[in-house]
Design a protein around this nucleic acid. Structure first.
Length: 268
DNA sequence: CGAGATGTTCGGCT
DNA sequence: AAGCCGAACATCTC
């Protein structure tokens, strides 16, 4: 489920717990979501610490914890395919796929992920972890220039543009539905090879990539499942959707190893 | 019952 | 070496 804006939405779900102390940690240490994590150290570091705040970048979230005001423990969460966060009451009964839950006074902060493609990370120390500071430039940042996009599209130009948009090193936060939305708005056929794009098309791709991210964060980031009514988003889930622009039935195929939908008339 | 699901990583093949 | 592709991961829903 979660791409850029949905991740931002889920991050906020733990906001009610900011400033409050963690009384108890409940986790499934042996589960895939906690691979590579010293769960005893994680539990020990968080118990008695306050949740100080959080941020989201691309598909990742970072939660800061500390005994006082400066952070000493950091928890990263990636929601994978089926993960989500929510806040519940203090007497919350753990569900089957609740792999990481923080109990505070009168509250529970829950990470639930049935498929376990998500991931929890843990880092102790006063400085943020490398796996956070080394993330590639955000699409909406100043460093995400058209030149940067052009170099990617050229260098990895053997792949269809749909596959390029899914590469997190270059398009951090873009997932399957966002890639389809971007290509639909840019009127580009998802099968087009990067190295065959005209420079005007590259410009359009850059602009629409940023535009989809911007609007998605503004709408979905605030209220899940609420992108503009004229977006491709609303038709791409149904088996027999119609293009919001021209009304023709949309196509479906596997491109870049993922189910892809597009309008064969509008996207050339 | 089989297929597919909004993600990432790894192994193998150019 | 770099780039590209498909399989695997774990579980649920249609």
């Amino acid at each position: 489920m979660p791409e850029l804006a949905e991740v931002e939405y889920y991050r906020k779900q733990w906001d009610p717990g900011v400033g409050a102390r963690v009384i108890r940690v409940a986790l499934h240490a042996e589960k895939r979501v906690l691979r590579g994590v010293d769960s005893a150290a994680l539990e020990h570091a968080l118990t008695g610490s306050k949740l100080l705040g959080s941020e989201a970048r691309a598909k990742q979230m970072l939660f800061r914890f500390g005994k006082a005001t400066s952070p000493s423990a950091w928890v990263g969460i990636h929601l994978g395919m089926s993960g989500h966060l929510h806040a519940a009451s203090g007497d919350y009964a753990l569900q089957k796929h609740d792999h990481f839950v923080l109990f505070q006074k009168g509250r529970a902060l829950v990470f639930n992920d049935p498929r376990q493609f998500g991931r929890i990370r843990f880092h102790a120390g006063s400085a943020p972890p490398e796996w956070w500071t080394n993330l590639p430039p955000d699409i909406l940042s100043r460093e995400f220039t058209c030149e940067r996009l052009e170099s990617v599209v050229t260098r990895r130009g053997g792949s269809p543009v749909k596959a390029l948009l899914l590469m997190q090193d270059f398009f951090p936060g873009v997932g399957n539905w966002m890639a389809d939305e971007i290509l639909w708005r840019a009127r580009l056929n998802p099968r087009r090879r990067g190295n065959r794009l005209e420079s005007s098309e590259i410009g359009t791709l850059w602009r629409e990539t940023r535009e989809v991210c911007r609007i998605a964060l503004k709408t979905i980031g605030a209220k899940l499942g609420d992108p503009p009514a004229d977006w491709f988003f609303h038709v791409r889930w149904s088996k027999h959707g119609e293009c919001p622009r021209c009304g023709l039935p949309i196509k479906t195929a596997t491109i870049g190893s993922r189910t892809t939908r597009w309008c064969a008339k509008c996207q050339k």
